[in-house]
Simulated assay, not measured.
Amino acid sequence: MNALDFTVKIDDLHQYELITKNYPEKLLPDQVMLAIEKFSFTSNNITYGVVGEQMNYWKFFPTQPGYGIIPAWGIAHVINSNHPEVKVGQRFYGYYPMSTHLLVTAGKVSNKGFMDITEHRQALPPIYNFYVNIEQDPLFTPRTEGLISIFRPLFVTSFLINEALADQNFYDATQIMVTSASSKTAQALAFLLAHRKKEIGQEFSLVALTSDSNVAFVKNLGWYDQTISYEQISHLTADKKSIIVDFAGNHNLQFKLQTILKEDLIYNCLVGLVDWQNLEGENPLPKEGTFFFAPNQVEKLQKEWGVIKFQQKVGEALLQFISHAQSTISIKKYQGVEQLKQLYTDTLNGKVDPKYGNIVSLNES
């Protein structure tokens, strides 16, 4: 059976190549062949590519030397199974390559899903190796499937940041600034922080930093107390104890913010690399930030709450968020290789409209 992989050059993300892969008809014990129906694509996927070497993202779906496959979250269905508990036709949500198919080895199978126990994935974080049986997951409905596919992994990251900040009583900050405030993960975090403010009366101002072209969109979300374009950051209040949650990764923006805030910057949380082409600058940063590694926080909360309670809390919060996101985000579908090429190039170059959530399918049906 033939499959198609969208691969990118590891040392130059602007270069990509389509690779045809041949899978044998006969599967080994416990192997399952999945046809990937669709996957979401956001600036977060570009971050996967930028830090692919450091964070081992290239190891999930190995390909030809010098190239990698950027992971994406999506939905696939079983077209062939050699595991007695995984049936043809079942649909699973999880971490997929930008491809038409994925061959996995199913282990720890339950009615909720399975783990891919393929040898090369065993040293990688388990959170990325679990495939959810969406027929058994109440979050997935025909109406919400698209938005869940786009937001679920991003929302989990935001949920974890929110909980990590709350654990520290928000470092007694009175101002939280979110860069790249129009990005999907930032939207989810703003929703959670705004909800927490209302719920417990937390005293901090939530400030959105975004490009001039996205100011109106971010203001209309209704979650930020103040929205400032990058060109106007001199208007920031500089005498408040502040937190930065940085989804942009822009070196010069970091330098400006640190120069303005000085000792009032009490926590600098580095999350994303939306502006990945501006990671370096002439001026050395006064302080290095702290990189937020989501799997560590997952492990902490699952130990404290238990796995089931953790999943329940995330699920309940995600449903609340999706009910709001339905009025602000429209699904935009991309079909086939040529449309994926255009979407990938546009996202790589920062030419994305925040009001759309992008869903890609490389399979014909």
Rank of each mutant, 00 (worst) to 15 (best):
P84N: 08
Y95F: 12
S81L: 07
Q90L: 09
S99M: 02
D30M: 12
Y16W: 11
G68S: 05
G89Y: 06
E17A: 10
M98V: 11
K9C: 13
Q31D: 02
E53F: 05
D11L: 00
N22P: 01
V78R: 03
T7H: 00
Q64C: 04
L13A: 10
G107A: 14
P71A: 00
L102N: 09
H83S: 11
L13T: 15
N44S: 12
Y95V: 11
K38G: 05
I46L: 12
A106R: 12
D5K: 13
N22Y: 13
K108W: 03
V8M: 03
A76C: 14
A35H: 07
I36Q: 05
N45V: 15
V8S: 03
A35F: 09
D12M: 07
L28A: 10
F60I: 02
G107H: 11
L13V: 15
T47C: 07
V78K: 00
F60G: 02
G107Y: 10
I79F: 06
P65N: 06
V8Y: 00
T20N: 12
P84R: 14
E37N: 14
P62I: 03
I69E: 08
Y57S: 12
K87D: 04
Q90P: 13
I75C: 05
Q54N: 04
T42P: 07
K38M: 09
V8E: 01
Y95P: 00
H77T: 02
T100Y: 01
Y16V: 06
G52E: 00
D5H: 15
G52N: 07
P84M: 11
E37K: 08
E85V: 09
P84V: 13
G66H: 13
T105D: 00
F41H: 02
M33N: 08
V86H: 10
A35Q: 15
T63F: 13
I19R: 10
